[in-house]
Design a protein around this nucleic acid. Structure first.
Lengths: 126, 126, 126, 126
DNA sequence: GTGGTCTAGACCACG
DNA sequence: GTGGTCTAGACCACT
């Protein structure tokens, strides 16, 4: 269900965070749906429980997941308002980063390429 | 030398930071070149010295400037390698943020608008 | 410097997070000041490095601290704007929690007591 | 039975959630009492069934209500102990948030205002 | 030296 | 059974 690239230089917990986000946004994981338990996922992916826990905690921080101690971890509702506010923040950060990138010599064309790659991933993920 | 828009809602120190960055990237300010002292620039721009100080400190943070206590602030070396590494990181972060934004419902068109606005600021700033 | 109550049921990393926050807000720790390294603090407090790391990461998440890999962890600037936005969020959350508490039978008097205790801690911390 | 303010900027489902909570806490709705069905309440309040559904789901989340698929939604037992535990947790979280708010510059007076507003809402709701 | 990631395995409170 | 915390100790890339 969650395929990871153990060889990638990108941290495992980060890969997992992104995977889960994709599944939530694409609708594959629905609000209030239960995520695999820390331990079971740890076994399935042959990854240490702490690493899974770290990913789940990060997801909770970002509001994509909530967890009930003793029960499990679940997909958050992500109401429209909250979603809008998040988008606002992301746009602000994006503006800053784009400026940085342009200053550092990134061309507009390269920027467009990044966007298109992201779009392909998005479609591929559904 | 450093033109500021006092009426802009963007903080003065932030404007100054970006101006200096541009001048460094464009090559107008060369490595090890001395920046104006806080006090002289404060007088020239009729801006509070604390504001200048804040801008210089930020530039130092980001590695564009180094300062010798009691002597002044100087343009960093910014060797190509260092710059390349920075660009690498910025691109990684950008990819993440773009993904996030698309997931949260931002359209490609809105993304392009953000980029164009950034480009205008860049050109307008020179 | 950072006194912890190892016997408390409150997690160690959480105690540390709160201590550091207090010191930052009270001004005892100033912007850009370097925090003790993960390892050194780990030895001083005879606490596992992972626990310190967890606290620092949490502080970074909340914007009180930034860390430069290979260099160290530092106190953030906390510009006014950012601070205001944070306060907005905290106020919203507070309103919700106060409602919850009233519904669950907490009296206004008990609420006031909580506030006064918090105030005392604040003064005591300086 | 459940009066809503359609003009309020507060979401209808949220208003409904709070109303039901009040009625439960105040004792007007007793344990194991059946709540109106989603469809009947939808007609009475001339509100979309999905909105009612969302409110009931939220109430179930928070433990105020349990639902038997195909039968209906019922008021939870809410034994004193359970309620006490909840209050304990809410108080802990409140203490943290109050600290945070004071640190971020909120005055005691503003805090009191938040509490009084909450109290008015409570009274106004009954 | 620094922060960041990860494994292995333990204990706790809660449901 | 669950999530949450913690220890002990390892490796990495970077300064």
């Amino acid at each position: 269900m969650f395929e990871l690239d153990i060889r990638s230089r990108k941290p495992i917990y980060e890969q997992l965070v992104e995977k889960v986000k994709e599944l939530i946004i694409s609708g594959a994981l629905r609000p209030d749906e239960k995520l695999p338990s820390v331990r079971s996922l740890s076994k399935d992916l042959t990854v240490n429980p702490n690493t899974i826990q770290k990913a789940y905690r990060e997801l909770e921080h970002e509001g994509f997941v909530y967890s009930l101690p003793g029960k499990g971890s679940y997909v958050s509702l992500l109401e429209e308002k909250v979603q809008e506010r998040k988008l606002e923040r992301v746009k602000e950060e994006l503006t800053k980063l784009i400026n940085e990138a342009l200053y550092l010599g990134l061309t507009k064309e390269e920027l467009l390429k990044l966007i298109e790659q992201a779009e392909e991933n998005k479609e591929g993920g559904n």
